[in-house]
Design a protein around this nucleic acid. Structure first.
Length: 516
RNA sequence: GGGCGCGUAGCUCAGCUGGUAGAGCAAUGCCCUUUUAAGGCAUGGGUCGCAGGUUCGAAUCCUGCCGCGCUCACCA
């Protein structure tokens, strides 16, 4: 028998002994007067004398995270809400049965105690226990108290244990929740309504990405998990929902990395009668407000960098300006604006860049605009640590945005970068159905070239646009990445509670697969 | 998918040029009525990721596989 199985059996045995003492093994509820965080905020400043007169009586519940028995008395630390409070259990105070119960308790058990607060000889705020109530048993041993749980794989697989042992993990997810709250509040206050659109779609549109495929049995229909809600949200602006947003999951069947998880959460919103500049400003203000709501200030730490979210500190430049500004000296003279217009001059830029840098992928048969966008990522992205707005994107990588009136190969689109990550993407929405059809047709040509990520034709979307979509600006914001920025997390897996992992060996899922 | 690294007790980790497995915490028993990484004495606990190979002998060397991490490529 494995050690943890032995401990499991031993603890089941103790549970029976606890029942024999008259305690319920799995009671239904516990009426508490205080939470542990509450006691710590209310009573941490009180002196020993102040706690004696008048006495502060408390009933609190928590999980045992440390326990020390010393003959006929003992201490334990209870944890609740990520915080710990010490309890003192004396045989004289809890009686024979109460002390028998105390001796049967293990690390990880849930108990409730009633008693009064006092300070120990060393000054620690402690509950002098008069009654212990057993609440639930931990049958499996918790990780070691000093080092805790550090194995990265175990932390992701058994996030419940990670959350018990590592308070900073709890903080990250509390901040993530605050972030989403803040974004919702901001949009609600600006007259947006929240909607939910299909995650299972017959055509996976709205972004350039490989979708996951699934199947509905009764309808005998192949479906895709959505890569973006975009086309559905814009159908809603056609329907008269002038300001809509959705916060939900997108699924992209692509590589994993520190910035990429196959399912990720995105905020998308659309505002009728606004262009890309107006939603750009709105997004910037919304993010600045969110940083304030989550962290309490306008500056946050990310690794060695201090990120200043104050609106006045944001930089704005066009994609072409960014390539010029961050062009590496080793690659020779900085590009001229006119170099971005022609296939051959762009090719020359790539060759100059690749000669002195790790090679960026380059396919001479791809549209010139696509190469420019790739060149931007290779040249500039790593320099974009402070919040920066990059605007004016090539039309070739923007099949859903409006053209710049004076430069039709470029579109009214922007992205927000910080800490070398793209965190938002927005544009003046293309609402001309005939131009949209031409864009889809261009994408189809890229598909024929073998680009699996290129957009498919969506006839119903074009039909919707044909009923007249108001001019609108729309934006997508990566919630996971924004959480990373605001919590100093350096991998997306640290801001996703249950990141995708391969199935565990000998797991039940594997067994059932074999049976099926 | 490519490259690099890791996998030893429930947890955190040692284990040398190959000689048959260790510590701390956790666990079990005993002592201890203000301790706090409590302490003291004693005890139990291992398919050294899996499968082959080399060898008299493998946790250790070799090969393959599985899992994880980092990184590169593709993508947000």
């Amino acid at each position: 028998m494995a050690l943890d199985e032995k401990i499991y059996e031993l603890r089941r045995d103790k549970l029976k002994q606890i029942e024999a003492l008259g305690q319920k093994s799995y009671p239904r509820q516990y009426k508490f007067t205080h939470t542990i965080p509450q006691i710590l905020t209310e009573d941490s400043d009180k002196t020993a004398e102040q706690l004696e007169n008048p006495r502060v009586n408390v009933r609190v519940a928590g999980r045992i995270m440390a326990i020390r028995l010393m003959g006929k008395a003992g201490f334990a630390h209870l944890q609740q809400g990520g915080q710990k409070l010490q309890i003192y259990v004396k045989k004289d105070a809890v009686g024979d049965k109460g002390f028998e119960l105390y001796k049967l308790l293990d690390l990880g058990d849930h108990i409730g105690v009633s008693g009064y607060l006092f300070r120990t000889r060393t000054g620690e705020l402690t509950v002098h226990v008069e009654e212990i109530t057993f609440l639930a048993k931990d049958l499996l041993p918790l990780p070691e108290k000093w080092h805790g749980l550090t194995d990265v794989e175990l932390r992701y697989r058994q996030r419940y244990v990670d959350l018990i042992m590592n308070p900073e993990v709890r903080e990250v997810f509390l901040k993530r929740s605050k972030l989403v709250q803040s974004l919702r509040r901001y949009l609600d206050e600006h007259g947006f309504i929240e909607v939910e659109t299909p995650m299972m779609q017959p055509i996976a549109g709205g972004a350039v990405a490989k979708p996951f495929k699934t199947h509905h049995n009764t309808l005998d229909m192949d479906l895709f998990l959505r890569v973006a809600p975009e086309l559905y949200l814009k159908r809603l602006t056609v329907g008269g929902l002038d300001r809509v947003y959705e916060i939900n999951r997108n699924f992209r069947n692509e590589g994993l990395g520190w910035r990429w998880n196959p399912e990720f959460t995105m905020l998308e919103f659309y505002q009728a009668y606004a262009d890309f500049r107006e939603v750009m400003d709105l997004t910037q203000n919304m993010i600045v407000q969110a940083a304030k709501d989550v962290t309490g200030g306008s500056k946050t730490k990310w690794g060695a960098h201090e990120i200043d979210w104050a609106v006045s500190k944001w930089r704005r430049m066009t994609m072409r300006e960014a390539i010029v500004q961050f062009w590496p000296e080793k690659a020779g003279a900085k590009p001229q604006m006119s170099d971005f217009a022609l296939h051959d001059s762009v090719k020359a830029l790539v060759e100059r860049f690749n000669a002195v840098h790790p090679h960026m992928a380059y396919d001479p048969s791809e549209p010139t605009g696509k190469t420019v966008a790739a060149l931007f990522e290779a040249v500039a992205e790593e320099h974009l640590v402070q919040p920066t707005i990059i605007y004016e994107f090539p039309a070739a990588v923007s099949p859903l945005s409006k053209n710049k009136p004076d430069e039709p190969d470029w579109v009214e689109r922007f992205e927000i970068f910080a800490c070398q990550m793209e965190i938002a993407n927005g544009f003046s929405e293309l609402n001309d159905p005939e131009e949209q059809r031409r864009r889809f047709e261009q994408q189809l040509k890229q598909r024929e070239r073998g680009d699996e990520e290129a957009h498919q034709m969506d006839e119903d979307y074009i039909r919707a646009l044909s009923y007249g979509m108001p001019p609108a600006g729309g934006v997508g914001v990566g919630i996971d990445r924004l959480t990373m920025l605001l919590t100093d997390s350096h991998t997306i897996r640290d801001v996703i509670l249950f990141p995708l992992l391969r199935p565990e060996k000998n797991s039940t899922t594997e067994d059932t697969e074999e049976e099926a």
